[in-house]
Each structure stands twice: as structure tokens, then as C-alpha cells.
């Protein structure tokens, strides 16, 4: 970890102004991911701007749907009654993530900006295109058992955001409210927020320098009310997903009226599957439909030597989630 300056600010424009001036500065909220990255010298920042006093709070139902302030803590959102009742996939994704201590600290905005657990990225002794563009990607032929199979490239096969919340949010059409250094706000659907690695895996999101996440909005919908998050890992708690599925269904009389599907642990980014949704929508809620949807979701999988199991695992995870969701009435 390098030496750095620290200051707390009370206004968003003060925070963004600092980052506009100093390209090496970073915002800090919960710090649960940032400090890790700094301690391992993966990120070296000149200063940290503490944004915890900014008014990006609140968990409320608005005319646009559920609005969550970016500075709300994972535990508060996960245990919120509105979220539990109307957006269960979001609550489940939060409460299955990390540990209670981390959930008490970590903010929603920071959660969406987690960086990959790829072992090559996390150790500066290795080459890594994401960390040092052009240095190479040893994961391609190396220890890739936990890495992505969808949306990957020859430059990078990391699960760019390894967390759970983003999977539930991309499934449920979440939209981010961002505020830039000029005080201007814009709204970006989370599905457009993350970037595929391509040849530029170091570019992970569309966030501009100095831009802040203000809030997350999730539309109210029948498929959000009946939604769930299923997470598979070799230990019961405190581990990233080998594969996960966030699914939302509106089923009427055995027919699926609308469906939302996203996969975690398998994509270079939190993986919304429109292909699976297309098969599910209008189809009977049967095993055959679910299996067809799962096959469609994994159609483009590009496994490497050690992560081929994820194709079957992700399919089974998705089918299981759809089963469990339709079994719940």
C-alpha cells in the first residue's frame, strides 16, 4: 500500500471536483473492496475521498420502482421489508454474499464496482491484461477453474464483477443514476453499465472519471415480486459463486407471461440472458421449457481447460432456480 491523502466531503460536487483534478484519487464508501486492492498494490491511489456523508441514502418505493441510495449498506438493503417482499432476488443476493461484517460495511455502489477474484489479477507478480494492458493473460491456459465462460475474450476470462447483487439487478432491469464532475446526472441501465473485456479488459464500466453512483432503481414488476437468487459454491457461506442464477417469473395458469434471467459466476460480466427469457416467455412452465432456456443461455459458452464444468453447472443452476421459483406460490 502506498501513502495517500484522505478527506471526507459533504457534497457530491466537492467529491467529483477532487477526482476531476486528480486522476489518481478514488472515492471510498465502505472500503471493503478498495482497501483490499490497495493493500495488495493492485490499485495505488494518491488520495481517498470519503463519500459517506453524501445524501445517497434511502430504500423506498417510487413511481419508477424501488430506489436504493448508493450509500445504503448491503445488510440494510438485504433485510429491508420492501426489498424482501417485492424484490426477493435482490434481498437473497445480498444476504448470500460476503460475511455479516462485510455486509454491514459495504455500500451498494461499491458492491457494483467490485473487481474480479481472478488469481492472476489479484497478484501483481503475474501478468494481467486487466491490470497492465498488453502484459498477457496467463489464466487462458492456467488456473481458470473459477473463471468465466460467457463473454470472454483472448485478452481476459475474468468474472469482472464477481458479486451477487449485480446479477439480481441486471435480471430485474435495474437502472443506475450517475452524477458526473459537472453535477450532471444520467441514467444508465445496469446491463449497459458493464463492458465486455474484448481487447480492453481494463475498461470495466462506462463510469467516467470522477463520476459517482447516486442510486439504483429497479422497476416494479410481477416478475420482480416472484424472483429468487440461487448461489452454488463448495462451501455454504463466505465464498463467491461458482455459478448463480437470478430469475424472475410471472406465471399465470401455467404459462410464463414474462421472465427475467441472469447468471453469475460464469460471465465476464453479470450475465443477463435475453436468449433464455425469449424461450421462457409465453411457454408453459415445464421442465422442458426450463432446460431449453438453460441451453439457450449457455449457447455461446467458451470454456477453457478447467472450467468446462461450469457449462453444465450453470444450466443446472438455472433450471433449479426456475423449478424452485415455480414451486413457490
Amino acid at each position: 500500500m502506498n501513502n495517500f491523502a484522505y478527506q471526507q466531503v459533504g457534497k457530491a460536487k466537492d467529491a467529483t471536483a477532487i477526482l476531476r483534478e486528480d486522476k489518481q484519487a478514488a472515492f471510498i464508501a465502505g472500503g471493503t473492496t478498495l482497501l483490499d486492492l490497495m493493500k495488495t498494490n493492485i490499485e495505488q491511489h494518491s488520495q481517498l475521498v470519503d463519500i459517506n456523508l453524501l445524501p445517497f441514502k434511502g430504500i423506498e418505493q417510487t413511481s419508477d420502482g424501488l430506489r436504493i441510495g448508493a450509500l445504503e449498506r448491503m445488510s440494510d438493503v438485504g433485510e429491508n421489508r420492501l426489498v424482501l417482499e417485492q424484490y426477493p432476488a435482490i434481498s437473497e443476493s445480498l444476504l448470500l454474499a460476503a460475511s455479516p461484517q462485510l455486509r454491514n460495511m459495504a455500500s451498494i455502489g461499491g458492491n457494483l464496482l467490485q473487481r474480479t477474484r481472478c488469481g492472476y489479477f489479484r497478484d501483481v507478480a503475474f501478468p494481467c491484461n486487466k491490470r497492465e494492458p498488453g502484459s498477457g493473460c496467463p489464466a487462458q491456459k492456467g488456473d481458470n477453474r473459477n473463471l468465466a465462460i460467457l463473454g470472454v475474450s483472448d485478452s481476459c476470462i475474468a468474472n469482472s464483477n464477481p458479486g451477487d447483487l449485480a446479477v439480481a439487478l441486471v435480471a430485474l432491469d435495474a437502472v443506475l443514476t450517475l452524477e458526473n464532475a459537472k453535477g450532471k446526472q444520467r441514467r444508465v441501465p445496469l446491463t449497459n453499465f458493464y463492458l465486455l473485456p474484448g481487447n480492453t479488459p481494463h475498461k470495466e464500466t462506462v463510469l467516467e472519471p470522477g463520476e459517482l453512483i447516486v442510486a439504483v432503481t429497479v422497476p416494479t414488476a410481477a416478475h420482480a415480486r416472484r424472483s429468487m437468487y440461487l448461489k452454488v459454491r463448495e462451501r455454504t457461506s463466505y465464498a463467491y459463486a461458482l455459478a448463480s442464477a437470478a430469475v424472475g417469473l410471472d406465471v399465470q395458469g401455467g404459462q410464463i407471461r414474462s421472465a427475467r434471467v441472469a447468471l453469475g459466476g460464469v460471465g465476464a460480466q453479470p450475465w443477463r440472458s435475453l436468449e433464455a427469457e425469449k424461450i421462457l416467455t409465453g411457454a408453459p412452465a415445464t421442465e422442458a421449457t426450463f432446460r431449453a432456456a438453460a441451453a439457450a443461455a449457455l449457447q455461446g459458452a467458451q470454456p477453457r481447460e478447467h472450467n468446462g464444468y461450469k457449462v453444465e453447472l450453470a444450466k443446472n443452476t438455472l433450471v433449479r432456480a426456475l423449478f424452485d421459483l415455480t414451486a413457490k406460490v
Partner: peptide, 14 residues
């Protein structure tokens, strides 16, 4: 890692 003879998960998170 087979090429670098270096561990890829030397943390208690991994």
C-alpha cells in the same frame, strides 16, 4: 500455476 510455479489463490478469500 503450471507455467509460473506460483500460487494463484494464496489468500483466505480464495
Amino acid at each position: 500455476d503450471d507455467t509460473f510455479a506460483r500460487y494463484t489463490n494464496a489468500t483466505l478469500a480464495d
